[in-house]
C-alpha cells in the first residue's frame, strides 16, 4: 500500500491559486485558502458562486484547471488514500438501480475505516428513512437525510456537506445539527458545509469562507467575520449622515428608517455620534455580513426575512 505521511503541520485543506473552467465560464478563479484540521468551515455564497465545484475538488471528484488542491497534504484526485479520507455525498448523488438503504449500510463500512454503525442506525431512526423503498424513489428530504447518514456515520477525516438541509423540515434539521455536534465532540474531524441558512447554522461553524463569482471574498473565523462589520440603524436621515464617510456594505430602508451594515470595527466615536443622533449601533450578524456580499438567501428560508425586519425596526423610538 502506498502511504504518504503528511507533515503534521499540513492543514486539512490547502488550495493555491485554484481555477476551474467549464467550457467558457470560470466556476472558480484564483482560490487560495486553508482550512485547519478539526474545524467546521461554512462555505457561503449565492447559487452559482462555485461552492459545489469547490467541494468536488476537495473530494477528488474533479480536478482543477489551474492551481493545486491538497487535502491532508496530498492530491485527493490521484492519491487514493486521500480520496478515501473524504466523504462528499453530492446533492444530486447517483445511486445504482434498485439500490436500497440496507445495501448502502452493508457496503459503507468497507469504504470508511471509521464508519460508525451506531451513528448510522441512530440517524436512520431519527430521520425515519425507509429501507424497503428504492433509494432512487426517495423524496428530496429523504435524499438529504441519506446524505447526512452516509456523511456523518463515515467519520471521514474530511466530511463535506453540500446544503445538507434541502427538503428537511425544521425538526429534521435540528436532528442533523444535534447529531453533528455530538459526533464532532466525541470524534473531532474537519467538516466543510455549504449553506444558505446562515443564521440557523452559524453556531455550528468555526470558520467561514464566502465565495462570490468563483472568488473568495472572505476567509476568516466566525468571530472575526462578525467583528468585521456592524450595523447602524435609525431615522434614515441620521443614518445617512452618520455613514456618509464610512464603508457601507449594504443598506436597507423601511419607511423612514434605515439600517446600514458598515465594514470595520465599531469605534467609540461612531457609537457616541450615533447615540446623539438617535440612532442605534449593534454587531452585524453573520447573515448580514454575507448578505452584504450580495448573497441573497433563497425565498422562504425560515427566519431570515423576519429577523431582518426586526433588526431594521429596532431603531424606532418608543
Amino acid at each position: 500500500m502506498t502511504r504518504q505521511t503528511p507533515l503534521a503541520a499540513a492543514p486539512a485543506v490547502r488550495l493555491r491559486g485554484v481555477g476551474r473552467r467549464f467550457r467558457r465560464t470560470d466556476a472558480l478563479s484564483d482560490v487560495t485558502l486553508e482550512v485547519p484540521e478539526g474545524v467546521v468551515c461554512g462555505l457561503l455564497g449565492r447559487n452559482g458562486a462555485g461552492k459545489t465545484t469547490l467541494m468536488s475538488l476537495l473530494a477528488g471528484h474533479g480536478q482543477p484547471s489551474s492551481g493545486s488542491v491538497e487535502v491532508f497534504g496530498a492530491d485527493p484526485f490521484t492519491h487514493a488514500p486521500t480520496t478515501s479520507a473524504v466523504s462528499f455525498v453530492r446533492d444530486d448523488q447517483r445511486y445504482p438501480d434498485d439500490f436500497r438503504l440496507p445495501h448502502l449500510l452493508a457496503v459503507a463500512p468497507r469504504f470508511h475505516a471509521a464508519w460508525s454503525t451506531e451513528r448510522a442506525a441512530e440517524l436512520v431512526d431519527a430521520f425515519r428513512l425507509p429501507g424497503r423503498t428504492d433509494v432512487k424513489k426517495y423524496s428530496r428530504g429523504q435524499l438529504s437525510a441519506l446524505g447526512i447518514v452516509l456523511g456523518l456515520a463515515s467519520r471521514a477525516p474530511l466530511t463535506v456537506f453540500d446544503e445538507p438541509y434541502l427538503g428537511l423540515d425544521a425538526g429534521a434539521r435540528q436532528v442533523f445539527y444535534r447529531q453533528l455536534v455530538t459526533d464532532l465532540a466525541e470524534h473531532p474531524r474537519t467538516v466543510v458545509v455549504s449553506t444558505h441558512l446562515v443564521d440557523e447554522m452559524e453556531a455550528l461553524l468555526d470558520r467561514v469562507v464566502v465565495l462570490e463569482g468563483g472568488r473568495v471574498v472572505r476567509d476568516s473565523t466566525v468571530d472575526e467575520a462578525r467583528a468585521a462589520a456592524y450595523t447602524v440603524s435609525g431615522p434614515a436621515a441620521a443614518v445617512d449622515a452618520l455613514t456618509a464617510r464610512l464603508p457601507v456594505l449594504a443598506s436597507h430602508r423601511l419607511g423612514g428608517l434605515r439600517s446600514a451594515t458598515v465594514e470595520g470595527e465599531l469605534t467609540d466615536e461612531v457609537d457616541d455620534a450615533a447615540r446623539r443622533a438617535g440612532a442605534q449601533t449593534g454587531p452585524a450578524s453573520l447573515q448580514e455580513l454575507v448578505l452584504a456580499h450580495g448573497v441573497e438567501p433563497e425565498v422562504g428560508v425560515p427566519g431570515v426575512p423576519a429577523s431582518a425586519a426586526a433588526r431594521a425596526s429596532e431603531g424606532v423610538p418608543a
Binding site: G38, V39, V40, Q174, Y177, R178, V181, T182, L184, A185, E186, P188, A203, L204, L205, D206
Partner: peptide, 16 residues
C-alpha cells in the same frame, strides 16, 4: 460536559 452543552445548544464543540 462539552458534548452535552454542544448537543443542547447545537453549537460547535470547539466553541463550547
Amino acid at each position: 460536559s462539552t458534548t452535552e452543552l454542544s448537543a443542547f445548544h447545537r453549537i460547535n464543540p470547539a466553541t463550547v
